[in-house]
Simulated assay, not measured.
Amino acid sequence: MGSLLKKCEYHCTRSRLVSVGQLLKWMDSTACLSAERHAGSPCITNSVDDVHFDHTIGVGQVVNIKAKVNGAFTSSMKVGIAVSCEDPFSNCQWNVCNAFAIFCGMQVIPRTQAEQMEYSIAAERRWRMRLIPAEIITDLLSSSTEYKDPVPAERTQVESVALVLPPHIMAWMENVATIAAH
């Protein structure tokens, strides 16, 4: 396996490479979908950490990006991201990088009277949860009729696969040229 991976790396260094910026964009999109599946609403990226690139990706290779919510907290979610690559001609596969991203749900804007009531109840519940004893919190939660079960972690898994083709490179070059021209 080691010699096959070296052969794939050699082939990759001789071909045009996918930019790290483009790869980060794909990773962010995939991870955001995972976070949005969990939250049931639009999410935004707060931060990305622990990104370490082990290998590169060349044109003609297949990129596989997997993301899954690893933890959900009061106002944020931690999403694990794994990127692998495959050379379709040699069937060689390798890990490109792993990362963690933190996403926050976008603020809900209540529009209807019912939504405003739900929003007020949620704000009250949040305030009470910080100030009153655990027994009362348990009572409050058990009497709520609007309680929604949490989304199972396996439902948050998202996978994105792309074949890197020369037109991608041309589009990226056009974007860079346009930015440079401005």
Rank of each mutant, 00 (worst) to 15 (best):
C12Y: 04
L23C: 04
E115Q: 14
H52K: 05
G71E: 09
D49N: 12
I132H: 10
D54Q: 09
S3F: 10
R126V: 02
F73I: 04
E146S: 12
T74Q: 10
I44F: 14
M173I: 00
V158T: 04
C104M: 11
I57V: 15
V18E: 07
V18K: 05
E124A: 14
G80I: 03
Q61S: 07
D149S: 13
R128A: 07
L165R: 13
K68S: 07
N70P: 00
C104F: 03
Y10P: 00
I65S: 03
T138H: 06
L4R: 10
S3Q: 13
D139A: 02
P152L: 14
I65L: 10
R14K: 11
D149N: 08
Y147N: 05
D149R: 10
Y119P: 01
E154A: 08
T138L: 10
C104Q: 11
S41F: 05
Y119T: 01
A177N: 12
S84G: 05
T30M: 08
S84W: 01
E154Q: 12
C92S: 14
N46A: 15
S75E: 08
A177Q: 09
T178G: 08
E118Y: 07
Q61N: 08
C32K: 08
V151D: 07
A180E: 03
S76E: 04
N46E: 11
T45Q: 03
S19E: 05
H52Q: 10
Q61T: 12
A153D: 08
C97K: 00
M173N: 08
E118G: 02
H11D: 11
G40A: 09
D149M: 13
S90A: 05
P150F: 08
K66D: 01
P133K: 06
P133E: 09
R155V: 01
L140W: 02
R128M: 14
A181E: 11
S75F: 03
N98P: 00
T45I: 15
A181P: 02
Y119V: 00
N64L: 07
A35H: 08
A180S: 07
D149I: 08
M27E: 11
P166R: 07
H182E: 14
L163Q: 14
A180L: 15
E9M: 11
V18L: 15
A180F: 14
M170I: 15
I102Q: 01
L141M: 11
E154T: 11
A67K: 02
I109R: 09
V63Y: 02
K25I: 05
Q116D: 02
S76H: 04
S90Q: 04
K6Y: 09
I102R: 00
C85Y: 04
A153M: 15
D87W: 02
L141F: 05
V48C: 13
A35G: 15
T74E: 13
Q113W: 06
A171Y: 13
M77T: 01
E86C: 07
H55G: 00
K78M: 04
